[in-house]
Amino acid sequence: MTTTSWNRHHILSLADFTPSEYNTVLQTAASFREVLSRRTKKVPTLQGQVVANLFFEPSTRTRSSFELAAKRLSADTLNFAPSSSSLTKGETILDTAKTYLAMGTDLMVIRHRDAGVPQAIATEMERLGSRVGVLNAGDGQHEHPSQGLLDLFTLCTLLDPGQPRWELLQGKKIAIVGDILHSRVARSNLWSLTASGAEVHLAAPPTLLPQLFASYGSAQGRQLHLHWSLEPALEAADFVMTLRLQKERMTQHLLPSLREYHQQFGITRDRLQLCHPDVKVLHPGPVNRGVEISSDLMDDPRISLISQQVTSGVAVRMALLYLMGSGKV
């Protein structure tokens, strides 16, 4: 296991991540990726610790990935289901978190449909003098840090399987296409990818890509470009990340139809002709096949990195839990 210093108590956002922290996560995840390739995939690094997955919002990939990551580290896991919890009896979210604290929880993984809930729980844990670390697994239209980090790991591992590192993306053109307005994945990726020196191009209909996203590129040296048509974003792109249309978060009719969206912004084999010849495609899932991306492209292992993203997720989440929990042993 890579030995390195880690001083971050909570992981709530990538906005203030440093180059050293990015590389620490990548190197640690690479070590755990090697562990996951063994016949015995379990290590005792968090044995005796308790990881509580408090998912106040439905999730399959993220929740399963965190649960598997914790078990691979030999931690005990507690899984929260809001439909069968005391929330239905009037208990507050903070009281729920304090109940898990009283059970001896060491790390809390929080997902909620409202932005700011993981931060509120982290603040409450600190007010109580607790050493519990809080990891944001997605909050409203804010961020999804572990998804941003696993996407970063997927890309850097492709470029250098033996030593994935942050600076490998410098100068690469990355197009992010789709429902950027509602996407916490996009927000986390904007921080990590622009910080790495990548040239990031956002493409979506104007209703799903407001001008305010230009502020993500306002920091010195960050290259961010907004497009309300697809072709400029795809031209000579090294990677294309397409995002799910999050119909459950849309409070207004922002698109004429899914068919028209696919005609204008759907990623197809023909449209990838505009990109770099070795272009690769990513999608955080779940996928609306035939809307954001064509089925044949999604299932083509020569182009699609979607399966690798899922596999990377376990290694990266093992790394995050390990880094946050190793000081508690």
Rank of each mutant, 00 (worst) to 15 (best):
R39I: 11
S304G: 01
V281F: 12
V240F: 08
S215N: 13
P286W: 15
A175Y: 14
P210C: 03
G217L: 07
A29M: 02
Y216M: 09
A115W: 11
V200S: 07
T99V: 13
H253T: 15
W228K: 11
G178M: 14
L152D: 00
D16E: 08
R38F: 09
L209E: 10
S196G: 02
I180D: 02
T123L: 05
S294I: 10
D139E: 11
T88L: 08
L272R: 14
R127K: 15
E91Q: 08
S86G: 01
A122R: 15
F32G: 09
Q119A: 10
I303Q: 10
D16S: 12
S257P: 03
L107G: 02
G116K: 05
K42I: 14
K42C: 04
N136W: 14
N53H: 09
I267G: 00
L168I: 00
R131T: 13
E126R: 02
W191H: 14
S192W: 11
L321R: 13
E21T: 11
V281D: 03
I306N: 10
Q47G: 05
G133C: 03
V25F: 09
R289G: 05
T2K: 15
V314F: 07
Q47A: 15
L193H: 12
P118F: 15
L190I: 15
R63V: 03
G285D: 08
I306P: 03
H276I: 09
F80H: 02
A81D: 06
V132M: 10
Q308D: 10
S20I: 14
W166E: 02
R184T: 05
N79P: 08
I293H: 08
K172G: 00
T268N: 09
H276K: 11
P284V: 04
G325Q: 10
N136Y: 12
A120I: 05
E143L: 06
L202S: 06
M250K: 09
T18L: 06
G197L: 07
A186K: 07
S13L: 11
I11A: 00
P301C: 02
K71Q: 12
L78V: 11
L12Y: 07
Q273P: 00
